[in-house]
Amino acid sequence: MPYEVKEEKGKDGRKVFLIQKENFLELMTDLRKQGYDHLSLITAVDFRDRIELVYHLQKSESNFELLTVRTVTYDSTIDSVSSIWESANWDEREQYDMMGVVFKGHPNLKRILLPEGWVGYPLRKDYDLSKNQYVNMDDEGNDRVSFDPGDGW
């Protein structure tokens, strides 16, 4: 293999692969070829200086055995895997919405749960919960977000 993969055991006995961000897409492509056809979950964990991305893959041939791939990004960007697994499409949108991770090469990267125009990424540790944002709707049904309590709810 042209890249280096560190393997370790997780706390609950999972198989965990650690991978550099540069080789991440290559590894994922190879894993798909090895039969990991079910991408279960993408999680981003904010450690203030870096964001760790955790991918849970499953192999349908061997009883959906679990494999975890972890990678770390310091500039909140990572290559998108939505061309490899269709399910990554919504997962990556959710992580973009909640964590502000930019997935390069994603076909439709916009907010999925919060309204368009929301300021900040709520699941980040530095998100300020004391500042309320208010949402209103225009005539076409598009959302409008502001910090003004008189405008919206």
């Binding site: 309204p115 949402v135 209103n136 709707m137 919206g152 709810w153």
Partner: peptide, 10 residues
């Protein structure tokens, strides 16, 4: 939710 409130009002 805040996203739902304008629709509820309408």
């Amino acid at each position: 939710t805040k996203k739902m409130a304008p629709r509820l009002k309408r």
